[in-house]
Design a protein around this nucleic acid. Structure first.
Length: 279
DNA sequence: CGCACATCCTGTGTGC
DNA sequence: TGCACACAGGATGTGC
């Protein structure tokens, strides 16, 4: 559930399921998912604790506990699965044929939250305090935070010589934008992905800011209609392709000028853009 | 400090 | 159909 809108939708759907609930125990199926922490570390910090709040920063999802913090990152394919209880969790997570790839799970009185990722890229960690959670403090301003303004974007862009696309992916500057929505925002703002971030003028920064917020808001609307279904592991956010204007549209006509969308490589990742509209 | 690059994994799609 | 290979919505640590 990679980028900000998807994680936000997950946070909203998860909140009513776990807020106020006490974590009875941690189930571990693949210890790699909490690496470099050990299952014992995580268990010690979460078992018996109550979930005070669910919140998101950038692409991270957090459970604030009455004491301590659970930090989750889904990377490419990670997802949450909800089970009615320990019995269903154990049955489905360990079944030989087409089992659900649950790495870790938190058992509550009302059900169990599975953290699943067949590629084992996603991570779930536990921290003694919020202050101890390093990943949280490495993040720049969240793209949905009120503090994320056109002026702030201009300031941060001015401090980076990198191409705009790579600048947007840097979570320590602005948190939450990934490979899809960086291409999308640049398309809406009509900016060239190779343009150095520090060459952005104030007007261009304002345009980019507006595009980022628009693209993420629009995607969040999509992600909530319908909202995440934690019961079906095959479920994924539907209909997002419909709102995409550049991403994964190589060779297809630009929605503004009808010329073909290009795919180029930047920093080892695909960037999609319109050479004609985005100068 | 900034940057290029390898690395962590497994499934799927594509072209031959 | 079988196979090899590129590719995937990400972050981090390394060496330069």
């Amino acid at each position: 559930m990679p980028e900000l809108p998807e994680v936000e939708a997950v946070a909203r759907a998860l909140r009513p399921l776990v807020r106020g609930q006490r974590i009875r125990c941690l189930h571990v199926f693949h210890a790699i998912a909490c690496k470099p922490q050990s299952p014992a570390d995580v268990a010690r910090l979460v078992e018996g604790r109550r979930v005070a709040e669910v919140f998101r920063r950038g692409k991270y999802l957090f459970l604030r506990l009455d004491r301590g913090l659970v930090e989750m990152h889904f990377r490419f394919d990670g997802q949450l699965i909800w089970f009615s209880g320990a019995k269903e969790l154990l049955a489905k997570a360990t079944a030989e044929a087409d089992s659900i790839h649950v790495d870790l799970a938190l058992e509550f009185g009302t059900g169990a939250m599975g953290f699943a990722d067949q590629r084992h890229f996603g991570r779930l960690h536990a921290w003694e305090t919020e202050a101890a959670c390093e990943p949280l403090h490495r993040l720049g301003v969240d793209a949905f935070d009120r503090a994320f303004t056109a002026v702030l974007l201009h300031e941060r862009a001015s401090a980076s010589k990198r191409p705009l696309k790579e600048f947007l992916l840097d979570q320590s500057r602005i948190a939450g934008i990934g490979n899809i929505y960086s291409s999308e925002a640049l398309w809406h703002a009509r900016l060239n992905p190779w343009q150095p971030a520090n060459s952005l003028g104030r007007r261009e920064s304002a345009r980019l800011h507006k595009a980022i917020v628009y693209v993420l808001r629009r995607a969040l609307e999509c992600c909530q209609d319908p909202p995440p279904d934690f019961r079906d592991p095959k479920w994924w956010f539907q209909g997002l392709e419909a709102i995409l204007r550049a991403y994964q549209r190589e060779g297809l006509p630009c929605r503004r000028c009808r010329r073909p969308i290009q795919r180029v490589e930047q920093g080892g990742r695909s960037t999609y853009f319109c050479r004609h509209c985005q100068k």
